[in-house]
Computed example of a mutant assay.
Amino acid sequence: MNRNTFRPGPLAEVDCQAGDGRWTLVFVRDLRHPPEKVWSALTDPAQLGAWAPYLAARDLGELGDVTLTMIDGDVTEELGASVTRAERPTLLEYTLGTDLLRWELTATGPGTRLVLRHTVTDPDWPAKVAAGWHLCLDVAEHLLDGNPIGPIRGSDALRYGWEDLRAAYAAELGAHR
């Protein structure tokens, strides 16, 4: 598999929870790799740069403030973030601007059940966020397999099925309301 032949995998298990004027996407994905390996992909700046929608100025496995740089082609935007919990290799939580991301990792035999809870302030965003994380985690799985294909982020995601994924997740999340 390479970037030219990449196709998104099946939809993840999703739900959306509302409260206090915020919406939390619950995105569940089973990965073939153990929690320790997934943890490294979530926290190590070099690995994040190969799959995530942002670059990290430092390791996310350490508590405290950090700058995350969102990337869309040649356009970058630095966002303040703060790692509030880092319990290797099972729980990572940090803010990203006004969003809150909570990554929970549970061993499932040789693999990992990843539960991402991404809290946003706009009710239209959970399906968009689900589509973006879907593509990012497909790319991360290739990286973890030892077959990196490079990040798919920003407007580049439109060429890899982001709009179809957004529509499918919107329908899925609508059924859960």
Rank of each mutant, 00 (worst) to 15 (best):
A41K: 00
W23N: 02
W39G: 00
D20E: 14
A171P: 05
G132M: 10
Q47M: 07
R102M: 09
L173A: 02
G150A: 04
E36K: 04
G64N: 08
V38Q: 04
L31V: 01
A50H: 09
L79P: 00
G146A: 07
V66S: 04
P35F: 04
V115Y: 10
R113I: 05
L68I: 11
H118K: 05
P148E: 04
L42N: 01
L60H: 05
D65S: 11
L135M: 05
H33P: 08
P8M: 02
W23T: 00
K37M: 13
W39Q: 01
G132N: 08
G21D: 08
R7K: 09
L100A: 09
D74P: 15
T84G: 09
G161N: 08
A170I: 02
L101R: 02
R153M: 11
Q47H: 08
G174A: 06
R177S: 03
P53Y: 10
A12R: 06
R153D: 07
G49P: 00
A140K: 05
V28L: 02
T43V: 03
D124T: 13
W51K: 01
N2P: 05
E141V: 06
L137T: 14
N147F: 10
L68D: 04
L116N: 08
P126K: 06
T67D: 15
G19H: 10
V129H: 11
A41W: 01
R22V: 12
R88G: 05
E36R: 08
A140E: 09
D15Q: 01
G80L: 03
A46R: 12
G146S: 13
L101G: 11
T106M: 07
G109L: 03
A140N: 04
G49N: 14
L11K: 01
D72G: 02
E62F: 12
R85N: 07
G97S: 12
V115F: 06
V129S: 07
G49S: 15
W125Y: 15
V83K: 04
V28G: 04
A131T: 05
T121K: 02
Q47E: 12
L165N: 02
G154S: 11
T67F: 06
W125F: 11
R7I: 01
L135Y: 08
S82N: 15
D44Q: 13
P34G: 05
H176W: 00
L92D: 13
A57G: 06
W103P: 15
A81M: 01
S40H: 11
H176Y: 00
P53D: 09
R22D: 14
R166D: 05
I149N: 01
Y54E: 00
H176T: 10
L100V: 15
L165M: 04
G97W: 09
A175D: 06
G80I: 03
I152P: 14
V129N: 13
L135F: 13
I71C: 08
L144V: 09
Y160K: 07
S155N: 14
T24G: 09
P89M: 06
A171E: 14
G154C: 14
D74W: 03
A86T: 04
T106L: 12
G21Q: 09
L42F: 10
A86M: 10
P34N: 07
K128G: 13
M1S: 10
P123K: 02
S82K: 12
R88P: 03
T90V: 13
G150S: 07
P110G: 06
L100Y: 09
G64D: 12
L91T: 08
V26I: 13
V66F: 04
E78V: 01
W133I: 02
A12S: 08
A127C: 13
T121D: 14
D74L: 03
P34H: 10
H176K: 10
E93M: 15
